[in-house]
């Protein structure tokens, strides 16, 4: 029985936001699934809209202000991440991408991630596999097999030929919970684990 921390990154811009709504649904379902596995869950939601200026400032100055740094630390230390973006111009939104541009490229390595996206229609549902999944693959995150796409029409119920949104939400959340349950994120202080110089030299000269 342990406590797992889930960080939810939501890139929606409107109030109310269907992106935030999908993020909340995924977080609730993940919490339920983790509870069934015997884990307690702390969920923290990060709305990128509130950090939009800070993210741009980080791009311009090279460092994060206090509020953005707190959000970055929350995401990179979480045991699991739910990342949701609206579809803009057939891809993830610029704000979503900019946030993941300013975190350290090694800081999500090994972290279980559930990816999701929203849009007006289902036309760009492949954004999950063509754009978002490769981004997290580069970051060496462990992306759960099922991504969740919600078009406006999905917020009703499904039909005989397709699964319903609540069903997909539950299945994706269960996949994330399975990964998170067996995982605790540990970020070592990079300044603490210094490889001795002699060892670095030895590694250079070893041929085998």
């Amino acid at each position: 029985m342990s406590t797992k921390r889930i960080a939810v990154v939501a890139a929606g811009l409107s109030q109310p936001s269907s992106t935030r709504l999908l993020a909340d649904r995924l977080a609730e379902a993940t919490t339920r699934s983790l509870a069934e596995l015997g884990d307690q869950v702390e969920v923290e939601v990060i709305e990128l809209r509130d950090l939009a200026h800070d993210i741009t400032d980080n791009l311009l100055t090279g460092f994060a202000g206090p509020a953005l740094q707190a959000a970055i630390d929350s995401v990179t230390s979480a045991d699991g991440v739910i990342a949701v973006t609206p579809v803009f111009t057939a891809s993830y939104s610029g704000l979503f991408k900019s946030f993941f541009d300013v975190i350290d490229k090694d800081s999500l390595a090994g972290t279980p991630v559930l990816i999701a996206a929203t849009a007006g229609t289902a036309r760009h549902s492949m954004v999950l596999d063509f754009a978002i999944r490769p981004l997290f693959a580069y970051l060496r995150a462990v992306v759960v097999p099922l991504g969740v796409f919600a078009a406006s029409e999905d917020w009703g119920s499904g039909d005989a030929t397709s699964t319903t949104l609540p069903d997909r939400v539950a299945r994706a959340a269960a996949q994330l919970a399975d990964l998170v349950s067996g995982h605790t994120t540990r970020r070592d202080d990079p300044f603490a684990a210094v490889v001795p110089f002699e060892e670095q030299l030895r590694r250079l000269s070893a041929d085998d």
């Binding site: 741009t56 400032d57 311009l60 100055t61 460092f63 202000g65 206090p66």
Partner: peptide, 13 residues
Amino acid sequence: GHGPSLEDFTAQT
């Protein structure tokens, strides 16, 4: 220019 405000920048650097 056009990044953090003077106040934010002097607080953080």
